[in-house]
Computed example of a mutant assay.
Amino acid sequence: MDSIDTLIIGAGALGLACAARLARPGQSTLIVEAESLIGSHSSSRNSEVIHAGLYYPPGSLKAELCLEGRERLYTWCRTHQVAHRQLGKLLVAVESAEIARLEQLHENAEACGVHDLQRLTQAQLQELEPAVRGSCALLSPSTGIIDSHAYLQSLLAAAENRGAQLVLHTRVEHLRHDGEGWVASGNSSGEPFQLRAQLVVNAGGLFAQQLANQTEGLQDVPPLHLCQGRYFSYSGRTPFHHLIYPMPEANTAGLGIHATLDLGGQVRFGPDTRYLTQIDYRVDENLREPFANAIRRYFPELDSARLVPGYSGIRAKLAGPGEPPADFLIQTVNDHGLQGLVNLFGIESPGLTASLAIAERVAVSL
């Protein structure tokens, strides 16, 4: 049986960040990915936002790792020439009744360590974004956007430069510890395989629980809740200069249908939230009017004919419909008692922003 030092399962942002952090000359690091491309799921199907860390419960992993990851990510982008832009976002209280919620969000951000939010009056908001309707707003100058595909490629290049290897079309289906290491078995390009690794990182994203349930000796695997978020593009001239976020919708799993920009200046609206029982990336054109109604609250001049079905992503949530939001779960030997194994569960937003910080936590735990 072939033996390696480190096995990384999953070549999304988390797996590749872990590989870039853990790989080193003289040690063997293997990244396996079931799909034909890196980042085929959540890592490439999101808003491509570098989050500032405003919404999460103070002291939570999401709050801590978002702030740490944000700074690491901006530095990484500058060092590795990954296209990004720190353009800022506006959090808008559309109606005066929402001002109290905006202030609560400001207080939460302060408690999380975000101290650069700027209050804007209605006049200041109109000056910055004439197309946006609102009573007042907060400006988050630390928020940015990133080319997620270029980021994934930069992580892979860094990992490979340190000796890691990537194998696609390879799914690990079972893990067991045989006293000498972790024996991983599965299928690679249609052929069964087995190998032994001293360290294993399960960064399978939407499929992390599936492997965890086939890991001998592992107890207390958390449930997975698939939550789809759909996006519409907006053709033609861009109406905004910043990202535009309304107040988070009550009793939903997301932040509301907001406006983001890509690095080419194209506007996209989304995501919405819809729990699923299986992965489904379709975007129904019949969603146009529900999207338009939500967007017109803060962008009254929206032309719904310019809304074009875009793409969707799936969030790997640990909380189901109507349940309080769950934190990231970085499951280490202290949690499960199995030496040399780390499972990453529920790494939804702000997972892309936090990816380098999560990789650091993984490295320290092994």
Rank of each mutant, 00 (worst) to 15 (best):
V362K: 06
I146Q: 05
N286S: 15
G346V: 08
V172L: 12
S40N: 12
A100H: 08
P141M: 12
E71T: 13
V32K: 01
V82F: 00
R288W: 00
D2Q: 14
R361M: 10
S36E: 15
Q198Y: 08
N46P: 02
T252F: 00
R133F: 04
I4G: 04
R361L: 13
L120Y: 02
A326V: 09
S96E: 15
R78D: 14
L307H: 03
L14A: 07
G320Q: 01
P57F: 07
K62T: 08
S185K: 09
T277W: 00
G337M: 13
T75M: 08
G204C: 13
R21M: 12
Q124K: 08
Q219N: 12
P325T: 09
Y56Q: 08
C136Q: 10
L166F: 02
I358D: 01
P324G: 12
G229F: 00
N46D: 09
T332E: 05
Y55P: 09
L206G: 09
S42A: 15
Q198S: 13
H174M: 07
S36P: 07
Q228D: 05
S60Q: 10
R171W: 03
T75R: 14
D335Q: 13
Q126D: 10
Q81W: 08
S40G: 14
L168V: 15
V201H: 03
L366A: 06
V283N: 03
Y74E: 12
N187H: 11
A137D: 04
L338D: 04
R70I: 06
F232V: 05
V94N: 02
G217K: 05
R78I: 12
G163Y: 00
I9C: 07
E98A: 11
E33S: 09
G320R: 04
L102I: 11
R288H: 07
G15F: 00
G310R: 02
N46M: 05
R296N: 10
P58V: 10
S235A: 15
S47K: 01
G254F: 04
R306Q: 15
A197P: 10
N213E: 13
Y298E: 10
R306L: 15
F240N: 05
G340E: 10
L117Q: 08
L175P: 06
N343R: 07
I9D: 03
S304E: 14
F240W: 07
L90I: 14
E64T: 15
